[in-house]
Design a protein around this nucleic acid. Structure first.
Lengths: 108, 108
DNA sequence: TTCGTAGTTCGTAAAATTACGAACAAAGTA
DNA sequence: TACTTTGTTCGTAATTTTACGAACTACGAA
């Protein structure tokens, strides 16, 4: 009957997952995982949302620690936050047992 | 200037990530990934939320396809939905480049 | 200095999420 | 047939999320 048993790692993983939990943000993350960096303006051209909304999504990703922005006036260059990206990878590996050969125990 | 370029896979991955985006749900998923199944009642005892709230979270996970419930009156036994769990693993592997040796391309 | 470009911030509105307790449903037990 | 146990559903409220356009900021270019 103990409470508050949710670990720090579960909190972190949930935080990252939440940031990834939107198609637009998933799109941006996948893009950055393969092309090193991108500019906000290029994204707006491709995505079906206005720039202020995109800015909000990028802020979400920034606040979650998954990406970082760098001013290159007059534009802003975004790339992954490599350190936290790695942490997210590790957490998901652990939670999803992604690197394990053993199957999830069967029901019963 | 094309729009609507978000892929079906990105949608799916975002859907799974969203379901994982809460500490309670992450807790349940991790538990089920290592102990095959659990009963709702046992969870309520451990978690700092009332049963109706837990029921809602379990419904979220069910709706996202990550778990499934089976009635074992008067209780309900939950376990992972193995098929979708695997799909989620595969999607995350892809998006997070989890199985790749090559590093994320450097900025610049 | 004025103008244009690129993004962020603000104000706002609609919708979704999270949480609780009360009421309900299902099924085994006394 | 009641009663108990287990969980879901309903009603509600507070908060967060998502989205838009307008206004603003920063900075380079004319």
């Amino acid at each position: 009957m103990q409470k508050e048993i949710i670990t720090e790692e579960q909190q972190k993983a949930a935080r990252y997952a939440k940031a990834m939990g939107h198609p637009i943000r998933m799109y941006v993350l996948e893009l950055l995982s393969k092309q090193s960096c991108c500019y906000s303006g290029d994204l707006t051209e491709d995505l079906p949302i206005v720039k202020s909304t995109l800015s909000q999504h990028l802020k979400e990703l920034k606040d979650a620690g998954l990406i970082q922005g760098e001013i290159e006036a007059p534009r802003v260059k975004y790339c992954l936050n490599r350190e936290n990206w790695k942490e997210a990878q590790d957490l998901f590996r652990k939670f999803l047992k992604m690197d394990s050969e053993e199957p999830i125990p069967k029901c019963q």
